[in-house]
Design a protein around this nucleic acid. Structure first.
Length: 190
DNA sequence: GTTCCGATGTACT
DNA sequence: GTACATCGGAACG
């Protein structure tokens, strides 16, 4: 994986990752929804500077930042930088493509569209947990392949936050049925 | 379709 | 003590 790809602002990486294929131990699919966070952003974990939890956000570019949310779910981020430590992209949803049986074992016999349609669901389906925090995405168990052609994007405000709620740093694959939630009908094409 | 709730780790007042 | 980048299930319409 080209390291330079992640040496960009979080918003750029968030756009670039839509349409990329992510696998963990051969289980995964196409990323269809992301959100950008950076250190200037009050919604970001990195906003107040490094802590034990967010250390990976200030670590090497192109690594995973995995954290626990609400005490029970995991969320998966890609650490980026561009000279501004504390930047990352939350992967919120993907379209399942490989390892569907493993996903069903972990998540139950759900419709395919419900397996990875949210940050916590995606982590459960792919088997992502805190043990992968800080691990490089260009090495096993991770595999990440970029899209050949840039897909059409939609853009909107991020989900589940109160601070920085107006910042339109949520991106989706246009027309995807695998999003965590729909983008508003008037969502701008990014 | 909607709202409400409980599960509970980590950061913070 | 409160807030939080969530989810699934219950209750309701």
């Amino acid at each position: 994986m080209p390291h330079a790809l992640f040496n960009e602002p979080a918003e750029t990486v968030a756009r670039t990752l839509i349409g990329a294929e992510l696998e963990v131990d051969g289980v995964g699919g196409v990323i269809v929804e992301t959100e950008a966070y950076d250190i200037s952003d009050p919604a970001s974990h990195s906003f107040g500077g490094p802590t034990r939890r967010n250390a990976a956000m200030f670590g090497a570019t192109g690594c995973a930042y995995v954290y626990r949310i609400y005490g029970l779910h995991w969320c998966f981020n890609v650490v980026c930088d561009a000279g501004q430590p504390g930047s990352a992209v939350l992967v919120r949803a993907l379209e399942p493509r490989t390892g569907l049986e493993r996903m069903h074992e972990r998540r139950g016999l759900l419709p395919t569209a419900s397996l990875c349609s949210g940050p916590g669901k995606l982590c459960e389906a792919l088997g992502i947990d805190g043990s992968l925090n800080g691990r490089p995405l260009d090495q096993a168990p991770f595999a990440l392949r970029l899209h050949a052609q840039p897909p059409e994007l939609v853009q909107g405000v991020r989900i589940g936050i109160t601070k920085g709620a107006e910042t339109p740093w949520r991106f989706g694959l246009k027309g995807s049925r695998f999003l965590s939630r729909p983008f508003p009908a008037m969502a701008a094409t990014a």
